[in-house]
Design a binder for these strands. Structure first.
Lengths: 192, 192
DNA sequence: AAAATACATTGACAAAGATCAACAGGAAAA
DNA sequence: TTTTCCTGTTGATCTTTGTCAATGTATTTT
């Protein structure tokens, strides 16, 4: 239990056995079946989820019912509506499972105590959010600077695992495209 | 000196006079004239800059010479090529001054010592990067979900100060558009 | 096994945005 | 002052992407 979570933690900030044992008490495991919601728009996001196994997506829904994926969460990543989690405002994103998944939940109160009690946890959190920031900046740069084909190639080589496990229309959504357009980009690339 | 920096710091994490005095020793002031570079693509980003006064932009340049603004930095914001700063790899962004500016620089070694010596500095850093992450996520959501007009309106109401002080073609670049397209969006909005 | 659903592809057409070129006003530089 | 450069606008046209509809296939559900 919590295997990947502590692997990831120790890689960033090494823990003693005792620390690990104490931190464990703040964690809650959760399993999610494919298509189940972890969070629905309008609800308050009460915990951050570390993905031990499986795949999730966070997305918003526009007036016309269109879904826009803001983030994927595969093994080793953290997923949440961070703004809602931090402020207590209603969530603007939905989060659901693309595959059967196993999560480690950290509630708001757990997060607060962990930050207070364990300086190493604050470092872990800081490094995580920094990594997430850099990943998102790369994505944004890609969007405003490159052609579709470059962006898609980029995505594939950066996240081959996502490309393989997730349906293409979701990748289109993540890229801000219609499924048809992505399909055509791929055809063009294959014909070479 | 460093007035805004410590205001911002104290708002997030209150400091004693003694702490403030000690932290000051790690900071370096720098003035930049309009159009001067703080960082050029290919160089290593050796410090993070807090903007005390003025306005800067971080941008990448594509093969055809097109500029793509990834971030503005006005008073109270921090600007850097964070990836380059953290890894020591050559920077992929340029940073220059849009107006005459005054900065507070924190070098890599200063950053490391501050993080080690002052838990409050780590908290400050964590809160800063979290804020930057949330701002970027809002921007990304806007890009993949909304129409141009919605995005522009959104931008204006979120950053009225940027909209006023920065030339429109830079805002177009920030939005991933040509100046002509942004001009047309504005005309359409004015005619109502 | 049959039916229903989800997924990817293709075509025809419409809409959005980019490109190229010209022009005008204002600020900065000479 | 005169000149140059920077900025924003507009028009005409081209390219890219979206929309709508149809189709085939795989996957899930019953």
């Amino acid at each position: 239990m919590y295997k990947l979570f502590f692997e990831s933690f120790n890689r960033k900030v090494p823990l003693t056995a005792e620390e690990e044992k104490q931190i464990k008490q703040y964690l809650t495991p959760k399993k999610l079946r494919k298509k189940q919601y972890l969070l629905q728009e309008g609800d308050v996001c009460r915990s951050v989820a570390f993905v031990e196994k499986g795949a999730l997506r966070a997305y918003s829904v526009d007036d016309k019912g269109g879904e826009h994926i803001i983030q994927f969460g595969l093994e080793g990543w953290t997923i949440a509506d961070l703004f809602s989690f931090l402020t207590g405002e209603p969530a603007t994103y939905n989060i659901d499972a693309i595959e059967d998944s196993e999560l480690v939940l950290i509630s708001k109160s757990a997060q607060e105590e962990l930050l207070q009690r364990f300086p190493k946890y604050e470092t872990f959190t800081r490094l995580n959010i920094t990594g997430a920031y850099l990943a998102m900046q790369r994505r944004l740069t890609s969007i405003i600077s490159f052609t579709l084909e470059e962006r898609y190639t980029n995505f594939i080589s950066l996240y081959p695992d996502i490309a393989q496990r997730v349906p293409q229309h979701m990748i289109a959504s993540y890229m801000g495209l219609t499924p048809e357009t992505l399909s055509r980009v791929r055809q063009k690339m294959i014909r070479r």
